[in-house]
Design a protein around this nucleic acid. Structure first.
Lengths: 190, 190, 190, 190
DNA sequence: GATGAATGAGAATTCATTCAT
DNA sequence: GATGAATGAATTCTCATTCAT
């Protein structure tokens, strides 16, 4: 098969990259990453052709992980607001657990190193989640179905909420509720 | 006293850094920056001791510029909502004019290279702006005067709005209004 | 286990450094050293973490070489004076053969770049040689067993002798004998 | 006159260089030296055309200072041995007082940066001192009048003595006497 | 005559990537 | 397939020296 030998090593490299980027930024050396992953310097390049490819795969990996996590909370049977709140809470929780992933990704997004292809792949993968924001948004200034802006706002608010919840974990519940409140009141009509 | 150090060169370097970082990320070489600024490589280091110091000053410069710009729109005599809207609009406008600054800063914030001192200096500089969000926020989950979280949400929403307004400039007014709407409804009571 | 690190390259680098320092002083560029050694610039730093580490290893290498050489002349069965003379002659000879090493080391010793650890390592390595000067020194002003001062004098005289012997190699025997004479008469009683 | 304005500044620069080289080696930056001397960076080069010229003048300055100091102890009326001892003691004392000068000079001598002209100038300046060693040396292996080697040995022993006296100042008298003893016994006949 | 801003050629060191083992 | 030695271009930063003020 095309995929090289060990899936373990692949994951170890992705994990090591996440931690290295969280700690040292995008300038983290590939040799450091390899060391953190417990593999040889050269091995990294057998799994990922270049550092940028590695970065894209790291980004994709975590986004997918997050998406999967959120889907577990997606419950069609719930009323829209409760459906949204469950997703929201899962999102914040994921962020608090995957601190390094969040740090690494915040650098990756703005770096310009994540390709359109990577972004598209993720976009395509969880249509249900996007649908959710479509359902809840009702804003007179935006034509209906203006999902990308709604998505972005949802994420932006969630990111902000996470940041504060991470800093003051004991007030996590407060921030979670307050953030959701802002999001919900902001994005839905009356 | 020989030649005085030139404020022009300082500004040229800050501007060059902004453009270089917007285009190439934080890895942009100091030699490139110096070339863009029209000065010798060594000159850069007479104005900024290290690349990180340069980055901090670039960040500070733009934040201050933004703050000053917003303060021009700050009109105590207006009702709170209109006061907030004027600031909001100025913010979005600033972001659309200073595209490179915005790109550069988004990388700088998450990079971990901006020191606490720099952040504090900016924080201290525009107390009126922070007061504004205090006045408008009324959220049952947040104890009154929870300004930092409110600030952060304001900024996060504005950033998101800018991004979309920048991508589709012809719909700038729509995004501006929609963004403000989300912010206002989200952050104020009823 | 891939290629092993090559002892040849290590030695080539030490040799190249010795020659470069002898010719250009401690300011000799690492790029020049690498070129002289026939390796890439980066390679130098895989063998020696920094230029200073390289310098310490160069110093250690030659001191050890010298010590080993002297030990070959160490003959316990000879009367003390003859034992000392053999060592002395070996020392001068070593210096005349290893001209670059001597030049390089004279710069290294006074540079302050040789660490205490390096000096200690060498000190510990050839106890017999230090014992020799202990045996011969009998000076009424110094308490017996004042070896470090005796050692230093032995070396200082030998260095001086080498210098002159190197400049006028045809009179090497004269300088060798005269130097030893000064040393022996100076350091022993009657 | 040819000499530029202030002799004070000249001396301040020589002194600053001495201290800077003692502390940081020959790599000490000219800007640091200027700062230590309390003058502007550019001023240094109005007094000394290049860094190497500066180094030569520093060397010359201290050697001359030392020579002058020794000449104060030169007393033709004393018997040779006592004449020599007084000089010896002055030498050691000078070294203990001028620690930075000694450190700086030890680096300068071996650096290859001191020109033949500088060395010659000093050589010519104190003929009496060289004569002294001529008078005292009587070594069967060295043809009479072999002054340079005798000089060198005298200096080498004195340097070594200084080093130890500097390290253990409370035993200065012991080292002074022991060093002289070695020198005298070594260099004179019976 | 003094100043210190400006310069740009190097300096040491790093690092993504290649390739012999 | 894995390894890690080797590479050399690129990077940040330094510094002797020049020259406008």
């Amino acid at each position: 098969m095309a995929r090289p030998k060990s899936e373990d090593k692949r994951l170890a490299l992705i994990d090591a990259t996440t931690r290295a980027v969280a700690e040292f930024g995008l300038g983290a050396a590939t040799s450091l990453i390899a060391r953190k992953a417990g593999v040889a310097e050269g091995t990294l390049f057998r799994y990922f052709a270049t550092k940028d490819v590695l970065f894209n795969e790291v980004y994709y990996h975590h986004k997918q992980d997050l998406g999967t996590e959120l889907m577990k909370s997606y419950d069609q049977s719930l009323p829209v607001k409760e459906r949204a709140r469950k997703i929201w809470n899962s999102y914040i929780d994921w962020g608090l657990v995957n601190i390094d992933a969040r740090k690494a990704m915040s650098q990756l997004v703005v770096s310009g190193k994540i390709t359109k292809e990577t972004l598209q792949k993720i976009f395509d993968e969880f249509p249900e989640l996007r649908q959710l924001s479509n359902e809840s948004i009702t804003n007179e200034y935006l034509t209906c179905g203006e999902s990308p802006f709604g998505d972005a706002i949802f994420f932006a608010l969630a990111e902000t909420t996470m940041e504060f919840a991470a800093k003051e974990q004991e007030r996590k519940q407060d921030y979670m509720a307050a953030g959701f409140d802002v999001m919900w009141r902001g994005m839905t009509k009356a």
